[in-house]
């Protein structure tokens, strides 16, 4: 009987934190399918450290970690190619991209090579990111002119600047006040965070532009997984995938409820047309990819773009 520690971000609340929901399902499935031979201990709330620290821990010891993009960045910045804005037209396309695409095959292999750890799943977290602001309804890139947006990192700054807006860094705990006082006019986040941060109280307009697919990454220590008997190893890998599938069903049902909640609380939603989305994609993606090309090999960007196009085509055909 072995025990493995699993660390992740966010509170241990199944209703609020999709990653915790994933972790508890993973825990149950692993224990069930190994007849209790493998126990998973949960460490929510980033208890075992910040992103980079936890990534180091999962690289060196028997550990399971759910890393956000910030955690991946320190060891595998190439993953940012998969976070280009307006990359996916649907959930199905994103699912295919993150389990059965050339990009994902090469990314998981390169990640193993770089870190010695397995990148098993892209855990669906909160649906797609949406823009919010309190100045005017945003329907296309032109509506961004002159607005100030809260930016989480440089890629977001590049995106806002491509639309003629500006990006300014504000830590999450200060976002509400910044939006209320006008330090920033708007921001982007999945609906869940707009609700958690009560941002709907200070933001009037909601643009559902499928900006980015929000996910975190399940990483498992290589030596630990390789050291398991074959049947247990397979059980862990399958538990990870099944827990993610369960998560996707729940998240996608939840996202619609959350959007309804935001509308009931006074936000005015807008879903851009195909032409408007094309304009977003043309301007946003090229600015983002230009920013990224200074940091990673262009081949990864091209591969991600091609894989996403294939996934989009496969699902819009239906």
């Amino acid at each position: 009987e072995t025990t493995v520690r699993m660390s992740y971000n966010g509170p241990p609340e199944v209703e609020k934190n999709a990653v915790h929901r994933f972790a508890t399902n993973f825990q149950t499935l692993v224990e069930l399918r190994t007849n209790g031979e493998i126990k998973v201990e949960l460490y929510p709330n980033s208890q075992l450290g910040k992103e980079a620290a936890r990534m180091e821990q999962v690289m060196t010891g028997p550990m399971v970690n759910v890393a956000s993009l910030a955690g991946m960045q320190s060891v595998f910045p190439e993953i940012f190619a998969a976070n280009a804005p307006f990359l996916f037209e649907s959930y199905e396309a994103a699912h295919q991209f993150y389990e059965d695409s050339d990009f994902w095959d090469e990314a998981t292999a390169a990640f193993k090579e770089e870190t010695g750890a397995y990148l098993l799943e892209a855990v669906e977290e909160g649906g797609f990111l949406a823009f919010t602001n309190d100045e005017r309804p945003i329907q296309g890139p032109a509506d961004f002119e002159g607005l100030k947006f809260r930016a989480m990192d440089e890629s977001q700054v590049a995106l806002y600047e491509a639309f003629g807006a500006s990006g300014t860094p504000v830590p999450w705990t200060e976002v509400y006040t910044a939006l209320k006082t006008g330090v920033a006019d708007g921001q982007m986040n999945p609906p869940m965070y707009i609700i958690i941060g009560s941002l709907y109280e200070v933001q009037d307009y909601l643009t559902l532009a499928n900006i980015q697919y929000s996910m975190q990454f399940l990483v498992v220590n290589g030596d630990w997984l390789d050291g398991l008997p074959e049947d247990q190893r397979a059980a862990v890998v399958r538990a990870a995938h099944d827990a993610n599938v369960i998560n996707r069903i729940w998240v996608e049902a939840e996202v619609q409820k959350r959007i309804n909640y935001l509308v009931e609380n006074g936000m005015e939603p807008y879903t851009p047309t195909a032409e408007e989305m094309a304009a977003f994609r043309a301007q946003g993606q090229s600015a983002y990819n230009a920013w990224l090309a200074e940091r990673i090999d262009q081949a990864w960007i091209d591969l991600a773009t091609a894989s996403a196009e294939a996934a989009n085509a496969a699902h819009s055909a239906r």
Binding site: G49, T60, P171
Partner: peptide, 21 residues
């Protein structure tokens, strides 16, 4: 009893003081 974890003392010391606020 895991000597490989000694490094975490440095890691957590650093992260403990590496905070903007």
């Amino acid at each position: 009893g895991d000597v490989s974890m000694f490094r975490l003392a440095v890691q957590q010391f650093f992260d403990g003081i590496d905070v903007f606020t």
